[in-house]
Design a binder for these strands. Sequence first.
DNA 1: CTATATGCAAATAGTTTGCCTGTTA
DNA 2: TAACAGGCAAACTATTTGCATATAG
Lengths: 142, 142
Amino acid sequence: MVNHPESTATNQEFPEEISGLRMTRQRLEVYRCLHDEKTHPTAVEVFMRVKDRLPHISLATVYNCLEALVQHGVIRQVNFERESSRYCANMIDHGHFLDVETGKIYDLEFKPGVCVTDFMKLPEGIITEDIDITVRGKFSKN
Amino acid sequence: MVNHPESTATNQEFPEEISGLRMTRQRLEVYRCLHDEKTHPTAVEVFMRVKDRLPHISLATVYNCLEALVQHGVIRQVNFERESSRYCANMIDHGHFLDVETGKIYDLEFKPGVCVTDFMKLPEGIITEDIDITVRGKFSKN
DNA sequence: CTATATGCAAATAGTTTGCCTGTTA
DNA sequence: TAACAGGCAAACTATTTGCATATAG
């Protein structure tokens, strides 16, 4: 994400220009929603939230905005099982914990300095692009 | 999976009784398909393959069979991104490597003795049910 | 001013469901 | 023979697309 030097944005949290992506009110609000909420909302949840500010926005536009933001590496699409895709603005490499009892999702940090090859046997000569780790479980009661 | 002691099955590869699951020709063929093919087929791929032996089987039945086998812990459902679900009969805990160039999927073994907590920071008091690891990447050319 | 994004509605893909008939245990 | 599975078609959900209009740069 690149902050445009001559940016006239009133809110410095949300860059006027995101690495060459044409910035529209809709894209800005979609991004803002994800940046504010750390809860990995679905497209429909983003849609409902953004409608407060942009009552005319359509669900298809939300999908298109999310797609554009994902393509420009500003947000991340996360898929859990067969559920709707979820999105998050946390671009730091991380995994997810899915609480099977509440359905809530928590970010998981990697332990510092670990590498996939420390715990998985990878075939020779692989160039790793991305690792996706999801832990399913629950909190013990006591 | 439990082999019935007095089993009269002619093919010892496919148990007549799978932990209380009523065994039908359809379920048997679906299971056999996954056991034979190590290629993580989708429901539609299983459907096409099984139709050779059971020309009257319907796609809905394949879905139902897969669901039943998953519920009884005999096969595993694996989801990659937004693609169709894939299924495999390898119940040993393993991850997956997705070759982004060919779309092919390879099983990945864990290194012996590793535990999630070795590489991820988990919240206190979590009971882990399942870990899902998918590595995306490609083979280097040389 | 021109390329590109929006909004709407309709299309699509994958999967699930309802209902009646057939089969398993 | 009772409970459950199969087959078929229709329903459903999440997402994508086509097209006319609006807007960003």
